[in-house]
Write a protein that binds this DNA or RNA. Structure first.
Lengths: 344, 344
DNA sequence: CTGAAAGCGCTTACAG
DNA sequence: CTGAAAGCGCTTACAG
């Protein structure tokens, strides 16, 4: 990145009085170098601000020490509006990459785009991390063809048997159960669910089923009349809550499939003259930063994004090294704030 | 990224019955190729799913077709909490890079880290985009040394004469002025400012001064007793509003230096029993997605992030090509919602 | 318009 | 422990 001519390993070799091969050994941390020699070379390298040329190195080793992050979104979604939860993931993935000496190429894609076409054969990255919302049944085939092509990837999402490739996800079912149990303990019985609840969106669906499992354990069940589809956005949450209200079915709690949906729903509820939590408990999912600043503060389910990022990177690197890698489910925790009627 | 052996330009050459050089010419879009030959080569390349090896290409051309985005943060800031505004920028930068055929390497850094050490000489990127909040007087020296080393970079931030390097930023002064004029028109006179207002944080300072300019034009002025320092976060906004209230100085409007600060301040004001906008007008800056979903919805100043991302990338690429590049100021617009007392 | 050839800056068997 | 040499897959003057 400088205009001045860059130092090469040959320059270092001359100055240090060794061969270029030795310089390379020193800088790649090879043990086959005399300690004294190493010191001398390192000193010269530092002095000339020498850095190994990544392209030359990668060309030779056929490894790029780079991972690609593909953030994909539903084509119908607003372009500029990415779930804050994914931003937390982006941060933790970036840091995990840094810890593992990997660079991170970031790209936004539409679900409809041809993911594999680009990174696959140009050696830009050794593997890719897939992160996004969208119709699972739609991109499932894409995952399948990635597997068939031998592409290394990890995906953040629902972890289910028989999926193509390796997935890391949080325990959505357990999260839903925690929410259901908590609302039951607060005396709520008619729990509405705002978010898609079908195999097209398995993460939301698992949250729904977890909540349902809690109700069933108490001899109750989720009422399909209280479920309204919504993608993860404030707008969708607002619209879904209006739809719910318009149905005229009684409910005493809203379980929003994501915090964004919860924020939108809370606005719609307030405009309808309903008090949260006095009239309706509201619970979200994700624990985005804003959840502490809604009024009232939002009870929600927190996912460990730091661990998630680390695990995504580790699992992908395992594949890159040819080691076996498996899907993992991460635990979640219920964060109780005031919107449910209990707590602080 | 595939396990199967990758096709090279030589494979394509054999199959297409031309030399490897011709294949290279076709794939780099050279005009020196017969149309028929081009067609044949392209067909074979498509069939074998051939992609130019980026490392080989970059090694040869000494260009990486990759830009680096450094998101830096104040070391004191919460690691996981990045300003939503920067996420919008990240999205637009990513898309602009895609349009210009550039890959984007993303990295998070602390203000204290040694930025230049990493990307500078390893040829990972042709230039870098700097995006972050932090004490300007602290990182100014770093910018200066980047310039001296001939590193190509653009920075998002305040645009002022005599700055090291090239900056793209929005017209913070004009934004502040719009806010001041609007609040005056609504009959507000005592405008508090929540956010740092010193040359350490020139973007906030310009917003402050713009508002002050509007007041001065009306024979008034900002009252330093109504200014409270705050970095860009909800927590800081909450704390700053409490400090302001504790001072016991009367005020009828709050101009928050960012939407995040505004969100925190609105919570503190509500807890103090103040009505927005009846008792106090609140205006933010950035127009983050959440601004439409605060209660009441937040009046704020919108920056054109799409144009900003495009301009950052374009300006950086101009430098990479050795063309002159200059700092640019982008216009802003006032988005009137209900928190100021006017509008919708 | 096309081909043969040099060379980008490394890594890594191979030989000592 | 060290060096000489081959070669990773391209691009681009050079010659025709």
């Amino acid at each position: 990145m400088r205009r001045k001519t860059k130092a090469t390993s040959i320059d270092i070799a001359h100055r240090a009085g060794v061969s270029q091969a030795t310089v390379s050994r020193v800088l790649s941390g090879s043990p086959l170098v005399n300690a004294e020699t190493r010191k001398r070379v390192e000193a010269v390298a530092r002095e000339l601000n020498y850095k190994v040329d990544r392209h030359a190195s990668s060309l030779r080793t056929q490894r790029s020490a780079t991972l690609a992050l593909l953030l994909f979104e539903d084509p119908t979604a607003d372009e500029s509006h990415i779930n804050p939860f994914f931003h937390a993931m982006l941060g933790s993935i970036t840091r995990a990459c840094a810890r593992h000496g990997q660079d991170l190429l970031v790209s936004f894609q539409q679900l409809s785009d041809d993911w594999h076409a680009d990174y696959e054969d140009s050696m830009k990255a050794d593997g890719m991390i897939l992160l996004g919302y969208g119709d699972y049944l739609e991109y499932r085939d894409k995952l399948q063809s990635l597997v068939e092509q031998g592409t290394r990837f990890v995906r953040w999402g629902a972890v289910m048997p028989g999926q193509p490739g390796v997935s890391i996800g949080c325990d959505n079912h357990a999260g839903g159960r925690l929410v259901g149990e908590h609302l039951l303990a607060l005396g709520r019985r008619r729990i509405a669910f705002l978010g898609d609840a079908s195999s097209h969106y398995p993460e939301f669906f698992e949250r729904y089923r977890g909540c349902d499992a809690a109700l069933q354990a108490a001899g109750l069940a989720m009422d399909p009349a209280l479920q309204v589809d919504a993608e993860s956005s404030e707008e969708a949450g607002d619209a879904a809550a209006r739809t719910l209200l318009a149905r005229g079915q009684g409910f005493d709690a809203v379980f929003a499939a994501s915090d964004l949906i919860a924020v939108g729903a809370m606005r719609a509820l307030a405009e309808a003259g309903l008090q949260v939590p006095a009239d309706v408990s509201v619970v979200g999912f994700d624990d985005i930063p804003m959840a502490r600043f809604t009024r009232p503060p939002l009870t929600t389910v927190a996912q460990d994004t730091t661990r998630a990022g680390e695990l995504l990177v580790e699992t992908l690197l395992r594949q890159v090294r040819g080691e076996p890698a498996e899907s993992t489910l991460l635990p979640v925790t219920l964060v109780v704030r005031r919107s449910c009627g209990a707590g602080q």
